[in-house]
Design a protein around this nucleic acid. Structure first.
Length: 755
DNA sequence: TTTACAACTGTTTTT
DNA sequence: CAGTTGTAAA
């Protein structure tokens, strides 16, 4: 497989990255700096290394791109001497787009990309030094989990005790800390076993020539660390390293960046500790303080003027985030007016919440706001269902972000597995995925034999299958098919290769025969389109590059991405975006903040930052909604309003009542007892089982109750029904406890409860 | 070996 | 509720 042009141009190791004569560009440097406020200007022109503490909506991306343009235009660096790192592909693209608008330069060869994308780039170039085959494959999260399950099975590990996801999380956590198995300390037998599994997993990946996300980072880190010449080359080249969303860097990524640093290079980091919401993925906010220390930076440059939101919205955001203790500290301000109050709506259940959102959305649209100017945010993707249903029923166009992405869909993964086998038939993971899909009579028994043969002879499944001859008819057919396709696509352009492989795989025929195969067929067609687009955009026909792209950029191929539609997404997915109108839904204890987060170290603070991110997405109008009950796992579940609602000064909030007759929607005081048994009617539509069942619960939410062991607490929610109904009580010192209602010995202060 | 269906279980956020 | 795993029958 020929290396792509991308790789060829970076292969030119003699490319000087240091100063060069100023570009002959029409953009005067004064023009570049015009319109920046003093802090932004200071950041753009900062000599040497700097840390920029950039609040939400403070022009962070503008500063970053303007700095690159300014450095180039003033001759301080050549385009090839810049390394700019982001976390999302979207952000990287955005940066390149803005950059080419500022300067007439060719951005294609520039090193602007995500950490993982750049790590991949390094490893492709230096695969030999890194100890990887030229055609190494990238495992996405699903692939990695499948590989781990396979490993556990092969080693006959009790996967009840060692849950695959646990093992996966353990391995990734170690890698994100830069730790190989030999460096991890394990004191108890369980940890020791985990460690063994980590080591075995590594061996398996190495054998199969595959690399997971964390491995991309770790392997490229080790490459730079161990090869002084290579390191020196990139240090010489990248005179300016710029990092976006610095608060999201992991320890390993931090050290990766530091390897590229030389005394006369400049590191420019932009971040906002208040928007650090990826700790669960290894992000380490502490990197910001460490950065200042390691680089001898006294104070960060603070960008506190917000150009996005009205003052009321900022006040709310500032008030919420002020409850966090661990902060570098900054308050946002705006020159814009106060704006409208924040609207708050309490719904009886998630269905009513969704109906409220739809009605308001329709009003906004009638007032002239395009659908696309409206975002509906939620904490967990599962919440999108009720909202989608209501929007769909009302005929409002909407687009859901997140969830299952294009390259993660089963049919696409299948097609990609065929392509991976075309690129490299030794890929066991890909082999197992499609050896019997579509079904061709290769069952568990055949695979057992094959795996045994492969193991004893130390070869891949593919080799074993070739060698074992045609003991199984289906297996022989599969081998013949793959060999045939490999021969057929040799020398074909990328898109043809994809089209031919998909066709020959039999996937199309298979899905044509399925009831719900229509959408899958469309997706498979779309895969060829994606290949065409990829080939044009990157000027390459390299299948490996396309497969890497598929793993590193799972989404972004949805149809109608640019249509005017209401945007539905998780708060995480909304980071970096802004909308004239924003709904934050599901503001309930247990959901937002999420109950899992409450038991994690610093979990509540991270949830609060998430709330901060959510609020600061809004430019003019902000809605907050919560529901008294919500369907969860097919059961209604009750919760108190989120504490974040109370952290916003009441003066900024205007409660909204449901508009339909007979409804009830004023903001309730969460500690006011007594409304659980009030019979209430809901808006016109079917209210679901809610009102009837509510009367079954003996204590109102918020009721103070006494427990013989834990003392006084507050009723925080219910789950389930009938004799298995559980009650959740929050105790001041003990936290949340669940009890079976029928057995819980609870008393209400001042009397015994009904029930 | 494949298919169909029952039982079980987890369930946040994502490059 | 939905996705996965286990079991029984074809």
């Amino acid at each position: 497989m020929a290396a792509s042009p991308i790789f060829l141009c970076v292969r030119n190791l003699s490319m000087p990255g240091h100063a060069h004569p100023p570009l002959d560009v029409p953009a005067e440097t004064d023009t570049l700096l015009a319109g920046l406020n003093p802090e932004q200007r200071a950041a753009v022109t900062a000599p040497g290394s700097a840390l920029v503490l950039a609040g939400a909506g403070s022009g962070k991306t503008r500063v970053l791109t303007t700095r690159i343009a300014w450095l180039i235009a003033t001759g301080q660096v050549s385009p090839m001497g810049v390394l700019a790192v982001t976390f999302t592909n979207k952000a990287a693209r955005e940066m390149l787009t803005r950059l080419s608008a500022l300067l007439p330069i060719r951005t294609r060869g520039m090193w602007v990309g995500t950490f993982h994308g750049l790590a991949n780039r390094l490893l492709r170039i230096h695969h030999r030094e890194a100890g990887l085959p030229e055609l190494f494959q990238i495992l996405d999260v699903q692939d990695q989990l499948a590989a781990i399950k396979r490993l556990l099975k092969r080693l006959a590990v009790d996967s009840e005790r060692f849950e695959p996801r646990r093992v996966q999380a353990f391995i990734n956590a170690q890698k994100e800390q830069g730790l190989r198995p030999a460096l991890v300390e394990a004191w108890d037998p369980y940890s020791r076993r985990l460690l063994e599994l980590y080591a075995e997993y590594e061996a398996q990946c190495q054998r199969e020539g595959v690399v997971d996300f964390a491995e991309l980072m770790l392997r490229s880190y080790e490459l730079l660390e161990r090869n002084a010449l290579t390191r020196a080359h990139y240090q010489e080249r990248f005179r300016h390293v710029l990092v976006d969303e610095f608060q999201d860097t992991s320890l390993l990524q931090y050290r990766w960046l530091m390897l590229l640093r030389r005394a006369d290079n400049a590191l420019f980091a932009v971040g906002d500790d208040d928007q650090s919401i990826y700790a669960f993925r290894g992000a380490n906010v502490g990197n910001m303080a460490r950065f200042m220390q390691d680089l001898g930076i006294g104070e960060p440059i603070r960008l506190t003027q917000n150009y996005r939101s009205h003052a009321i919205i900022l006040d709310a955001a500032n008030a919420v985030i002020a409850h966090n203790v661990n902060r570098l500290g900054k308050d946002l301000w705006t020159a814009a007016g106060r704006g409208e109050p924040i609207r708050h709506f309490e719904a009886l259940d998630d269905a009513e919440e969704a109906r409220f959102v739809v009605e308001e959305v329709q009003d906004l649209h009638r007032e002239g706001l395009p659908w696309g100017g409206i975002a509906v945010l939620y904490r967990a993707n599962a919440q999108s269902r009720a909202l989608e249903h209501a929007l769909f029923t009302a005929g409002v166009p909407y687009r859901v972000w997140g969830g299952l992405r294009f390259f993660e869909r089963a049919e696409i993964k299948h097609a990609l597995a065929y392509l991976r086998l075309v690129a490299n038939p030794e890929d066991d993971g890909a082999f197992l995925r499609v050896v019997n899909f579509p079904a061709r009579g290769v069952g568990a028994r055949t695979l057992e034999h094959l795996e045994a043969a492969a193991r004893t002879q130390g070869m891949s499944l593919w080799q074993a299958a070739c060698q074992g001859g045609a003991r199984n008819k289906g297996l022989a057919a599969f081998v013949a098919l793959i060999e045939d396709v490999r021969a057929q696509v040799r020398g074909l352009p990328l898109a043809e290769t994809v089209a031919v492989t998909v066709e020959r795989s039999g996937l199309l025929t298979h899905y044509r025969g399925e009831r719900d195969g229509e959408e899958r067929l469309e997706n498979l067609q779309e895969l060829t389109n994606a290949a065409v687009a990829f080939a044009i955009e990157n000027e390459t026909q390299d299948l490996m590059a396309f497969l890497a792209h598929a793993a590193l950029e799972a989404g972004e191929y949805e149809a109608a991405a640019h249509a005017d539609a209401v945007q539905l997404m998780s708060v995480h997915a909304a980071k970096g975006l802004e909308f004239p109108a924003v709904f934050i839904t599901g503001l309930e204890e247990g959901l937002f903040p999420h109950e899992n987060a409450l038991v994690e170290q610093d979990g509540l603070e991270e949830e609060r930052r998430l709330m901060y991110v959510a609020i600061t997405r809004a430019r003019q109008r902000l809605y907050l909604t919560h529901a008294q009950s919500r369907m969860l796992h097919g059961q209604p579940r009750w919760g108190l309003p989120s504490r974040f609602l109370e952290e916003i000064p009441t003066g900024l909030i205007k409660p909204i009542r449901a508009r339909s007759s007979g409804s009830w929607g004023a903001k309730a005081s969460p500690l006011a007892p007594g409304h659980a048994s009030d019979a209430r009617t809901t808006t016109g539509g079917a209210p679901g089982p809610t009102p009837a069942r509510r009367t079954d619960y003996p204590y109102a939410l918020g009721t103070r109750v006494l427990h013989p062991r834990y003392g006084e607490g507050v009723v925080a929610g219910y789950q389930g029904q009938g004799p298995e109904t559980e009650i959740r009580v929050t105790f001041p010192h003990v936290g949340d406890k669940w009890f079976i209602l029928a057995y819980a010995r609870l008393t209400v202060r001042g009397g015994v409860a009904r029930g």
